[in-house]
Simulated assay, not measured.
Amino acid sequence: MIENDTPIYVNNTQIENVESYIYPGQRYSTRDKNQDEEIQRRITAGCTAFAKHRDIFKGNIGTCLKRQVYNSCVLPAMTYGAETRALATKQRTS
């Protein structure tokens, strides 16, 4: 990480210095190269999307429609903006 205490201004507004940010749909960090936090964030996003559609998945509708909801709403929350990654055992069990 490059330490720089010099403030940056755009249109007389100081830009905030952050250690991580999400753009677009992927977490970037200036402090660590470890992807554990990004992987956990995506798993959480997928679980949240799945929970939002729980009634559909438990409902009495066809598997084809459930699959469409999963592919349209849950899967993109977990994988948006990134390639498929192999998970370490630690990441699969969290």
Rank of each mutant, 00 (worst) to 15 (best):
N71S: 13
G46L: 13
V10R: 03
E38H: 04
Q68E: 08
Q91L: 15
E38Q: 06
A82E: 05
D32N: 01
G81Y: 01
I39N: 01
F50N: 08
L65I: 09
K66S: 03
R31A: 12
N11D: 13
Q35P: 02
N4W: 02
D55H: 10
Q40T: 11
A82G: 09
I61C: 09
F57S: 12
T84P: 00
G46P: 07
Y80D: 04
K66Q: 12
A51Q: 01
L87A: 01
C47K: 00
N71P: 00
D36P: 00
I15G: 07
L75R: 08
P24I: 12
E83Y: 06
Q40N: 10
N71C: 15
Y80G: 12
T84N: 04
I15Q: 06
D36F: 00
R67N: 08
Y23S: 13
N4P: 02
R31M: 05
A86S: 11
T6K: 08
I43Q: 01
E37S: 11
T89N: 12
K58F: 13
Q26S: 15
P7I: 14
R67K: 11
A88P: 05
D32R: 05
I39V: 07
Y28M: 13
D5E: 14
I15E: 02
N34E: 08
I15Y: 05
A82W: 03
M1R: 08
V74R: 02
D32V: 00
C64I: 09
K52T: 12
Q68T: 00
K33G: 14
T63S: 14
F50I: 10
A45H: 08
D5V: 11
C73S: 04
C73W: 01
E83S: 14
R31H: 09
E37I: 03
V69S: 05
Q40I: 06
T13F: 13
A82Q: 02
R27V: 13
E19Q: 07
Q40K: 06
S20E: 03
T79F: 02
G25Y: 09
G62C: 05
N4A: 10
R42W: 10
L87F: 09
N12T: 04
A45Y: 11
A88R: 04
G59R: 02
A86G: 11
R27F: 12
D5Y: 04
I56E: 05
G59A: 13
M78L: 14
F57P: 03
Q68N: 02
G81P: 00
A51N: 08
R42D: 15
T89L: 15
V69E: 03
Y21R: 10
S20P: 08
Q35H: 07
G25D: 10
Q35R: 11
T13D: 13
S72Y: 06
T79P: 02
E3C: 11
V69A: 05
I2Q: 06
Q68I: 10
T30S: 10
N60S: 10
I22N: 06
T89K: 15
N34T: 11
